[in-house]
């Protein structure tokens, strides 16, 4: 396990160059460039349909880019299926709708990928799985099926499941949007904990409080392009671009 607190290497962890994504004639991302350094907590905001989720899904190749380049630690990524599979284990993803496997218990959800992908024995993987459940506050739910859990609990299991593969980057796709308001706090608390540990995270969210407190950088996306990129203080408090101001105004009014 690489120490996430180690000093940044000279090449960025992820470098996105001129990323383009098209669905037929519809262009969703038009040439986005940015980079992520180890330990960054990059918060991506923007109106719905601006391409936030697509950008995230491109970062772990659930969507294949139509153009541009994504480099991991300086190395370009080919689109060969085998390499993509290997790469996905280095990039964890937490989905808006959790997507726990309903036919497996919480513990089995955590153990599946280590057993299938890493060929670890159950005995080798289980202590870590229990430790991670402890960390997200659900140690007592190990043998429960997901259907018995609240949304907030399910999302925390999903985070733990993701951590089992020891990814170098964690991607969060609106992790609290599908939750009842009173359940959002528990999930955000776990995410804060991860950020404090120095994990590299890319978070698509409408939680401006989280962006301000935890984010090291905020990326404002609109119509498939980056309109603002900077520390939360400047982007959220003193936005330069009118679209950012308009967006923040609408979100904070809610």
């Amino acid at each position: 396990m690489s120490d996430p607190l180690s000093a940044p290497q000279s090449p960025p962890l992820i470098e996105v160059r001129n990323l383009i994504k098209r669905y037929g004639s519809l262009q969703v991302l038009n040439g986005i460039s940015f980079s992520i350094e180890p330990g960054d907590v990059l918060v991506v905001i923007g109106p719905s349909g601006c391409g936030k989720s697509t950008l995230l899904r491109c970062l772990n190749f659930l969507e294949l880019p139509s153009g541009g380049e994504i480099r991991f630690q300086g190395a370009p990524v080919s689109s060969r299926p085998k390499e993509l599979v290997a790469l996905r284990t280095r990039v964890g993803m937490v989905f808006q709708r959790f997507h726990l496997f309903p036919h497996l218990t919480v513990l089995q959800n955590l153990l599946l990928a280590p057993q299938v992908v890493r060929r670890q024995t159950r005995e080798a993987a289980e202590p870590r799985a229990r430790a991670l459940l402890e960390k997200v506050g659900l140690a007592d739910k190990a043998d429960v099926y997901p259907v018995k859990l609240s949304g907030g609990q399910q999302q925390r299991v999903a985070i733990a499941r993701c951590l089992m593969m020891e990814p170098e980057v964690l991607l969060f796709d609106e992790p609290t949007s599908a939750l009842d308001p009173e359940l959002v706090g528990d999930v955000l608390q776990v995410m804060r904990k991860l950020a404090r540990e120095g994990r590299t995270m890319v978070v698509v969210t409408h939680e401006m409080g989280f962006a301000r407190d935890v984010g090291s950088r905020v990326l404002m996306l609109d119509q498939g392009g980056i309109v603002e990129d900077g520390p939360p203080d400047s982007v959220l408090e003193h936005p330069e671009h009118p679209r950012t101001r308009q967006f923040l105004h609408r979100v904070l009014e809610r």
Partner: peptide
């Protein structure tokens, strides 16, 4: 099945067959 089930599995590094 939800499309997300397959995606969640692939995001964890499973191949399509797995």
């Amino acid at each position: 099945l939800e499309a997300g089930q397959g995606e969640a599995a692939e995001a964890l590094g499973l191949t399509r067959g797995q």
